[in-house]
Each structure stands twice: as C-alpha cells, then as structure tokens.
C-alpha cells in the first residue's frame, strides 16, 4: 500500500472572482502500516485532504495516487469513519458491521432467490461481525441493538468495526472522536490502537485535538495556513508546516502522555501549527519524518 500526494492544490472560485486557495501544492507520501495523524487549525483543509485520498473530492491541481494509480472514486481499498452518520439507523449493530461483507454477497438474483451461496456469505458475514463486536469492546447482546439505543461512543465503535470488516488497506478517520467526551475518548483511543495493531491497517486520522494526534499517531502531519514566505508575506493556502515522526514505539502505553518527551513534541507541534503570532517561514518547517517531502523550500 502506498499513498502519494503530489503537488496537490485545492482552489475555490467564489462568484467567478479570483480563486481562494485552500491547499497550496502539498506533497506527502504515506507508507504501509503507519498511523498518520493529520492536524491543523480549523479551515486548513485537513478534511479536504482526507477526502481527496478517500475519493470523494478531487484536487484542482496535482495528483493523489493510491498504489500508483490516481484516485478516481470511492472503493473498498479505503475505509472511512466520519464524526457521525456513519452507521445505518435502520440496521442492528451486527447487521451494520456485516454489511460490508454482505454487499459483496452476490448479485440481486442470488439475494432474492436466497441461493445457498448468498446464505453462506451472509452466515459467515454475521459470524465475523459477532467476533468484531467483541473486539471493539461491545457486549454480545449489543449486536441486536439499533444505533438509537447506543451511546455516541458505542456508535463510533460500530463505525470503526463496519469499516474494518472489509479489511481496507487504509482506514481514513475524520474527527471520529470529535463528538465524544474526554472519558469516552480515552477508551476509544485504546480500542483504536488495539485495532491498528491487530489489523495492521494504515490509518489516517484527522483531528483538531493535538494531544490525541501525538498520542495516537506514529507520525503527525501538521497542515496550516498560518505561515509566512521568507520575505515576510502571509502564505496563501495551507501547506505542511510540520511532519514529525513520533517516538515511543508503535503502540504507546497510555503513560506515554506523561513523559517529558511527549510534552515537548506536543508543545512544538502546537506552536508550529497553531501559533498565529509567530508564523513559521519554510526554513523553520520541521520535516523529520523519513517519508516527508519538503515542497516549499
């Protein structure tokens, strides 16, 4: 699996007037198995970047390649978890999770005729869904519940499980824990790290919560429109101002949050990405991740 983002810009024309640049010539490589946190101030286009990898939005300039091919549509290679509305309101938990395998379960005639093939696919899908229910920390009896009977955190667990069941090569997550309170978040983060380990999926995780980003990811990419050109002019559009490898091992223990190393990196990234008083110039961008590409040097 590889994701290559090459000189991608996103511009909007407002009422035919000169374009507003949201993302300015961003390049990025993401390799198999990484947990990439994508952070940045609101409006910096981190969700846009994620959607371009997903295939639901396209760059104005440049190219997003997945396994060497330009991304042209949404498909089973890339799973997604949104902040909300990822879960079907009319399906039980088990059904929701199994859906990804059932959608693959033969064509319409097989479904209507209930052919043995269709029944076999459905049976194995449901049993796999039940295994996943345990993995995401729900009780077996929760499998028969509908989303409206679940808490926000449980719904997001289901959303993660339903995306993982098809074994996507990369899991894209757009503020998945954004609507959850701190206590619930902590449990969700642990669960997500465990899933990352078990499934070996690449994860791209968009969040505005810096602490969450640094704790979860082994790479933090900071996208920001708060930067300056060497001559001191305000930068146009967001660029990658920070691309850091996070130490602490693949799956960090929760105590990592209390290490001085963690605090130092967190403070640095927070400054680099979010500080409007002291905007970085390209020479101060920190790109210490081995895969990082300096596009504006």
């Amino acid at each position: 699996m590889s994701i290559e983002i090459r000189d991608v810009s996103v511009r909007y024309s407002v009422n035919g007037k000169p374009h507003k640049t949201v993302i300015n010539r961003v390049s990025l490589n993401i390799r198999q198995g990484d947990f990439v946190s994508l952070v940045g101030p609101s409006g910096c286009g981190k969700t846009t970047l994620l959607r371009m990898i997903f295939g639901s939005q396209f760059p104005t300039e440049g190219e997003v390649r997945f396994n060497g091919r330009p991304v042209e549509e949404i498909n089973r290679d890339r799973g997604i978890v949104f902040q909300k509305y990822s879960v079907m309101p009319n399906c039980t938990v088990e059904h929701s999770i199994a859906l990804g395998l059932e959608l693959d379960g033969g064509n319409l005639t097989q479904r209507i005729l209930h052919t043995p093939h269709f029944r076999r696919v459905r049976r194995s899908a449901r049993s796999e869904a039940r295994e996943l229910i345990a993995k995401i920390g729900l009780k077996p009896e929760d499998g028969d519940k509908y989303p409206h009977e679940l808490s926000g955190g449980m719904c997001q667990r289901v959303a993660i499980a339903q995306a993982l069941i098809t074994r996507p090569k990369v899991l894209l997550m757009d503020e998945p824990f954004g609507a959850l309170d701190a206590g619930v978040r902590k449990g969700m983060q642990q669960m997500l790290l465990k899933c990352w380990q078990d499934f070996g999926t690449t994860i791209i995780f968009v969040t505005h919560d810096m602490e969450e980003a640094v704790y979860l990811g082994n790479r933090v990419v900071g996208l920001s429109q708060l930067w300056e050109t060497p001559s001191g002019e305000k930068g146009t559009g967001a660029v990658i101002v920070s691309d850091r490898a996070i130490p602490g091992g693949k799956v960090k223990p929760y105590s990592f949050k209390y290490e001085p190393e963690f605090s130092a990196i967190l403070a640095q990234i927070q400054h680099d990405v979010l500080e409007p008083e002291d905007p970085l110039t390209p020479d101060r961008f920190i790109h210490d991740h081995p895969d990082s590409i300096k596009s504006l040097a």
């Binding site: 997903f54 639901s56 949404i74 089973r76 997604i80 909300k84 509305y85 990822s86 959608l103 996507p168």
Partner: peptide, 21 residues
C-alpha cells in the same frame, strides 16, 4: 447524510445497492 452513502460505497456497495439497500 452523504456520510452513509460514502461509507457504503467504501464497503463495496454498487449504485444500485446505494439506492435500494
């Protein structure tokens, strides 16, 4: 919500399945 449709597409739903399932 678009999220529902996109999420189903990412799990392999066809256009037909998006409409009817």
């Amino acid at each position: 919500p678009n999220e529902l449709i996109e999420s189903a597409l990412s799990r392999g739903a066809s256009q037909f399945e998006i409409v009817y399932r």
